[in-house]
Design a protein around this nucleic acid. Sequence first.
DNA 1: ATGAAAGCGCTAACAA
DNA 2: TTGTTAGCGCTTTCAT
Lengths: 354, 354
Amino acid sequence: MAATIRDVARKANVSVATVSRYVNGTYKVRGVTAERVKAAIEELSFRPNAVGRSLSTSSTKSIGMIIPSISNPVFADAVSGVSDVMRTEGYSLTLASSNYDVTDELSAISTLLENRVDGIILTVANPAQSKALSMLEKSQLPYCMIYNQPTAGHSTVTVDNVAAGYDVARAMIRLGHQRLGMISGKFASSDRAYARRTGFLKGVDEAGLEPPAIVEVGYEDEQVSKALENLYADLNTAPTALFCSNDLLAISVIGSLRRRKIAVPDQVSVIGFDGISVGSHMYPALATVVQPSKEMGRTAARHLLEMLLNGQEQYVSILSHILRLGESAGPACKLDPAVSQPLSQNTSSKRSTT
Amino acid sequence: MAATIRDVARKANVSVATVSRYVNGTYKVRGVTAERVKAAIEELSFRPNAVGRSLSTSSTKSIGMIIPSISNPVFADAVSGVSDVMRTEGYSLTLASSNYDVTDELSAISTLLENRVDGIILTVANPAQSKALSMLEKSQLPYCMIYNQPTAGHSTVTVDNVAAGYDVARAMIRLGHQRLGMISGKFASSDRAYARRTGFLKGVDEAGLEPPAIVEVGYEDEQVSKALENLYADLNTAPTALFCSNDLLAISVIGSLRRRKIAVPDQVSVIGFDGISVGSHMYPALATVVQPSKEMGRTAARHLLEMLLNGQEQYVSILSHILRLGESAGPACKLDPAVSQPLSQNTSSKRSTT
DNA sequence: ATGAAAGCGCTAACAA
DNA sequence: TTGTTAGCGCTTTCAT
């Protein structure tokens, strides 16, 4: 079907080697010859076959990326960052999603390995005991984790999740909250959520407060609503401030609280994690720990490129996070069931917007 | 480095053909032989090289996808749908983003073509005059558009954007709005936004209302705020209902209005387009035209698979959209500058949540 | 500056 | 059932 380098060579009356040199700019092609080759290429609409090239050079100029979910903006932003720097370096990006499932992680890696990508950027459930990661290690292929916690022997780009969790606890306490809680995705499928919890617990403990209620939920809305139903059965003992392990969850929690006529932040403050951009546009603007997702993607990509050049060094980047106190978090005030209904109707604006 | 089929053959004392047959399940491998091959494969950690296979079979078992932006959840959802069905069919997904830029579209296609993907799913700025599309056409490669309007000669999966725009106008009018407006991304880079406008104008016109104000904005927040500054200089003549060409824009518009102390929906109703999931969680819940993005992705993927089997037929799927009236849209009421400030402080709850 | 030819890892006739 | 072998499209020595 498509023209090959041979067709071009024939038409231009040169050897395939010459065509190859012309195409790749491996110069040494005389002006006149170049013209002939160029003409032939255009006539035949020749487009070099990267598969043939890859087989010959044993480099595909493509990298793989595995993320838990494409639909979570935090990962999409990272993909966007990776994609940006990789494209400018002439690499293609093969994307796979693991759906937070360890088996899927494994098969995704398998596929990428068979496709002979030059390197992989990925987020796994838990690097400490990841079959995916050990498969990768013995494959010798360069790889860099993203979002995952630093773990002996692996490169990664992330933020200090423990410190961030601690920051959240401190912020809540500073606002006067005494009963704190955390709603999180499954810790088993997120080492960073676990780390955030660790920091959060530390902060609460240091302040001498009661250990916070911690609830794990899956990825369906009904689980969130069910969890809140239990947690807020008695408003007098329920947490007045809730830390959610990610923004999507936080948004869902806020929605759920509203449906239960619990005002945010008047009755309950909510702080998320990630800093996805919709969070700052919504009302109340989401209080959250912002991690620089796109930049994290770029950084991971650059690390991978380094490895591709300089061999298997190890890179660990901890980028800095920012605690952004949006409108969804405010000073503690008494949770009084009696005024709950009227309060929920008015979203106070004592706190400034900007 | 990595073991090849030859190494395996040698170790198992069989021919490469036998190994190939074993690996591909092209049966006809006797039990005893199979055992030996299996053992050899494991000892050597042999992993078939898809590059070699592709060169031989002239099929890469991979498809390309080009979307305007990875960070817009509406596209991410489509990617997710495509990814799902493609993976179950054993295909890899190479993702590229065009950033709404026609030049980037072109180079993305070029790259995918060189990589010899088996097919492409893409959203272009404007199919009617797309160089990307014509390049694709003459390449003979199967492809299917997604989100783009039906256009002679091309396969696509989308919703009826004209009808949807019309629905939005009707809904606003039914709510009593008389002065309508539309805020849209650049029409030049979105045929669907243009189609939505067409339907919207028709609806307004049919009702005998004044032609709506239509403002095009770029993708930066400040442009939105600038646009609203002009549009809402005089509240007495400004639109009481705003149609935004996509949800991200709508969310941004709502945020911007709030900052201008204009209450949504008490003073201005806002309706978006896409139905991204965060929209339904936020407050006010976003009124919007829901398109089944993930299902659209799946459908496009299935179309592509059909083409891969049955050759170049043409598939056009118009999936149905749903106008979901969330809390961001409500009955018209007088825009009275005098009460604007107090009103903006209270978000009324006369309209039901569910 | 250009050409000839040997592979890269695999599949698929064709033989046996 | 298994083996032999000729490519797939390209790069890259090694000659010229």
